[in-house]
Design a binder for these strands. Sequence first.
DNA 1: TTCATTTCTTGTCCTAGTTCAATGTATGCG
DNA 2: CGCATACATTGAACTAGGACAAGAAATGAA
Lengths: 193, 193
Amino acid sequence: MYSQINKNISRYVTFDTNELEIFNSLLEYTTIPKKTILLHEGEMCTFEAFVIKGCVRKYYIDANGFEVILQFAIENAWISDISFSIYEEKPSRVYIETLEDCEFFMFSPETKEELFAKAPKFERAFRILMQRSLAVTQDRLFNTISKSATEKYLEFRELYPTLSQRVAQHYIASYLGISAEFLSKIRTKIAKL
Amino acid sequence: MYSQINKNISRYVTFDTNELEIFNSLLEYTTIPKKTILLHEGEMCTFEAFVIKGCVRKYYIDANGFEVILQFAIENAWISDISFSIYEEKPSRVYIETLEDCEFFMFSPETKEELFAKAPKFERAFRILMQRSLAVTQDRLFNTISKSATEKYLEFRELYPTLSQRVAQHYIASYLGISAEFLSKIRTKIAKL
DNA sequence: TTCATTTCTTGTCCTAGTTCAATGTATGCG
DNA sequence: CGCATACATTGAACTAGGACAAGAAATGAA
């Protein structure tokens, strides 16, 4: 049960058994059915969730009512709107929604602080996780600006082969920043080659 | 001399005099003339720099040889390619270049580790700085995908009023993900209103 | 198994933004 | 000062991708 998350948190920092026991004891296991919105715009995000099983999306709604997907999270990924809400006390601008029935391990801000107090090395692990998210987001920004829709789609399939099976195409279009119709046209063109 | 950076690092975590002395003693003050490339693609990024004075840009070069600016850093901002290079030992994909004569405080990876060893609370401060960078980058990604070029330019001017005076327009265009010519057309249209 | 809802495809027309090229304007430097 | 280089503007022609609409296919609930 804890092996996935323990492997994940130990990726860049080594913890001893005692530290991992503290970590595990603070995790809250939760199951949530599909199509459930975990966080609405305007709310405070009071969780960080590690996906044990299932699939989640995080998205903005723009001025014209269009959804823009910022992140998908599947097994072994973290999802939260950690960015502003927790430390700045600003309401979130994003939505987080399950796309499949999900199992999570959740942290609240309080239990996370408790963890850092009891085992300060986790501060480091979370800092490095954060750096990796930043790296991924910067790369995505670069791709969004500099690549054609076709390139973006092909690279998405390379990078997330399972996701492109699991998730509706219009969600992928929204993630790539293109219209669902245009993605469909790209796909038929690719299929003809 | 140290007041700017001490204020910056204390924004989300409170440090006592002793901790700040340790911090300050590890900083390396450096001046670098304008138009100097601090980091080339393919190198390891071995610094994190705090800008005391001056202006820096961080950019990718895409498959067609076009520059895409990821970040500007002016006074009181941090700049580095922290994302992959330091912990993953992967060469950087970005360039970092001074646009003006600059004064920095620099950290090497080793002195940063020394800092964390001597005063672990800094781990937390850097984690929160990282979270803020992530928030800013996510916001930028959202804007890039969902807004028109005109909106992006107007918001850029709102958000970074000094920058839009200080740096060449084609750099701003590159940051916004539009061509320099089109930015020029937007500006003349705005001026006519 | 049927009906409803959501998702995907395809076509037509349209526009925001690009590319290229030419000209004008600053700016830095010996 | 004068020249060279970098930077900004403008226009004309082009294109990637969007918006809309209508139909087809898949999914799902009862």
